[in-house]
Design a protein around this nucleic acid. Structure first.
Length: 497
RNA sequence: GGCCCGAUGGUCAAGAGGUUAAGACAUCGCCCUUUCACGGCGGUAUCCCGGGUUCAAUUCCCGGUCGGGUCACCA
């Protein structure tokens, strides 16, 4: 059995296998995340295997530590891969630079089979404008493919560097079927002899993806639609090797609306659009981001929108993926994030909220758990927690105008008298919890013969200094404790006098 | 510019040759409420344009327009 037969033997057969194959750029694009998700879902929905492969053949773009970010992101998203650089598998290695020798061997094989040739042209050399059917096409054309074995040997021993190029058939057409876009046909004359192996000996994406996808037994190639127009070239490669062509699922890009021009463009880190890790830092939950991203360009059958990852696995279907690019809507993500927050158990919410709360609450007398409970159903993103509760830690400056509220019928005068009347009532209280406070203050309002709001509104302002707070007067007082609440109310009385 | 792909409210989108053209976000109004929020109820708003095919087209076909992708020793 020769080397190539051995490689064929290793390929698992009979199961669905997909792969997510990112380049280590240092962060996770939203578009990439969505592709990773869809790739995972397609495999898992069909009971298949999900593989992680690192495409690091571009040495110039190498970023230190970038692969760790990929592992970390996949982990926080729970997109667990069954095979990959860190967990191994039957068709490794799973990092392209570690597969280097492989590509060379297959490139040699392809030359033998007539699908490729060595090209000694310098970069930019051999570019011609060819006219086909009256249309001008820019492509590479040189005499290198006609070089004899001895001529090639001479050049190489003379130290001339070369690349290996794909040899595109002169005529005919190449067709393929994409699961989303349907059948696509391209005349071969419009395809270029692209570089397969670079002078540094490493393959280009054009070559590596075909070799790896075949050798790893990938049955469904899921990737961005930017590869749609080069797919015919890859199929020519598969055919030249005599390999089976995989199923293709090309996904459209995730767009954003440029705030300056109003034009829609692809989301990109370069233009300041958030990456996955940016969204997490902004206070979004990974589950919510994943759920939103799933719906950005895919639509489930029913009307439900909230899906956990296992539920997505169950319901996902490529037929629901849309052909046109979708605009990423941060507002809808924010809504969905709030839905996720509200659905959490108090304990789970406290666990994620605590770090944000303790950023501003350092007073040990304040109960973080109680604060979290109060905030949970009015929190959209974790990062907006701080400004909602900072008044608990320290009373902010505020304008007495807050006491005046039309609907509550409060004025500076009746606020002052309400606060003055409240002090002895609060002072006399033995129990200090929300229910007792509410009962006592309602009684006070009744005794004074005024509406609840006349009493409760000024107290809320007096203890918070804010127009909007995570709870009403009694909840805030309960949180602050007796001494602090009364102290704040007395300060407010001074301020109003 | 060539080639490929696409087009339903502001956004994500369902949809079928004949429908009151779903739903969600956003937006607006009302209700609830010790504020805001949450919650509840309701409103505004969409089939890109022109030709065909058909009794009937937003749906099928052809053009146009607009949008996206691609034309690297990047992936």
């Amino acid at each position: 059995m020769d080397f190539f037969e051995e490689m064929e033997q290793r390929i698992p057969k009979g199961t669905v296998r997909t792969r997510f194959a990112p380049s280590p750029t240092g962060y996770m694009h939203i578009g990439n995340l969505r592709t990773a998700l869809y790739t995972y879902l397609i495999a898992k929905h069909l009971g298949g295997t999900f593989i992680l492969r690192i495409e690091d053949t571009d040495q110039e773009r190498f970023v230190e530590g970038a692969t760790d970010i990929i592992y970390k992101t996949m982990k926080t998203c729970r997109l667990t891969h069954d095979e990959g650089p860190d967990v191994g598998g039957p068709v490794g290695p799973y990092i392209q630079t570690e597969r280097r020798a492989l590509y060379g061997k297959y490139a040699e094989l392809l030359i033998e089979k007539g699908g490729a040739y060595r090209c000694f042209c310098k970069p930019g050399e051999g570019e011609i404008s060819e006219t086909v059917d009256g249309k001008t096409i820019k492509k590479h054309q040189c005499q290198c493919s006609a070089l004899s074995q001895t001529a090639i040997a001479q050049k190489r021993s003379a130290g001339e560097t070369c690349v290996i190029r794909q040899k595109i058939p002169a005529g005919g057409v190449t067709s393929f079927t994409d699961a989303i876009y349907g059948e696509i046909t391209v005349p071969n004359a419009e395809l270029d002899d692209n570089v397969l192996i670079k002078t540094d000996g490493l393959p280009t994406y054009n070559f590596a993806n075909v070799i790896d996808d075949h050798l790893m037994g990938i049955t469904h190639v899921v990737r961005g639609s930017e590869y749609l127009s080069s797919t015919p070239k890859y199929n020519l490669l598969y055919s030249a090797f005599g390999w089976e062509i995989p199923n293709y699922v090309h996904c459209s890009s995730v767009m954003t609306i440029d705030p300056a021009s109003g034009a829609t463009r692809k989301m990109s880190k370069r233009h300041g659009d958030p990456s996955f890790e940016d969204l997490i830092a902004l206070g979004y939950l990974p589950e919510a981001v994943l759920n939103y991203v799933a719906l950005c360009g895919w639509s489930p059958k029913g009307e439900r929108e909230i899906y956990s990852l296992p539920e997505l696995v169950e319901h996902f279907d490529v037929s629901g993926i849309s052909k046109s690019p979708a605009v990423f809507d941060l507002k809808k993500l924010t809504w969905m994030n709030a839905e996720y927050i509200k659905a959490m158990s108090p304990e789970a919410f406290f666990a994620v909220a605590a770090p944000y709360l303790s950023l501003v609450i350092t007073n040990p007398a304040l109960d973080l758990k109680a604060i979290a409970a109060l905030c949970q159903n009015r929190c959209e993103v974790l990062t907006d927690l701080a400004e909602r509760i900072d008044f608990l830690q320290a009373m902010p400056d505020y304008d007495n105008a807050l006491y005046v509220h039309k609907k509550m019928k409060t004025t500076l005068e009746n606020s002052l008298s309400a606060l003055q009347a409240a002090v002895p009532v609060l002072d006399a209280m033995t129990a200090w919890d929300n229910d007792s406070l509410y009962a006592a203050l309602m009684q006070l309002a009744a005794d004074l013969g005024v509406k609840n709001g006349i009493v409760l509104w000024p107290i809320r302002v007096a203890v918070s200094g804010k127009a909007s707070t995570p709870g009403g007067a009694t909840e805030l007082c309960a949180l602050l404790g007796k001494t602090e609440s009364i102290r704040r109310i007395k300060l407010a009385i001074e301020k109003l006098q």
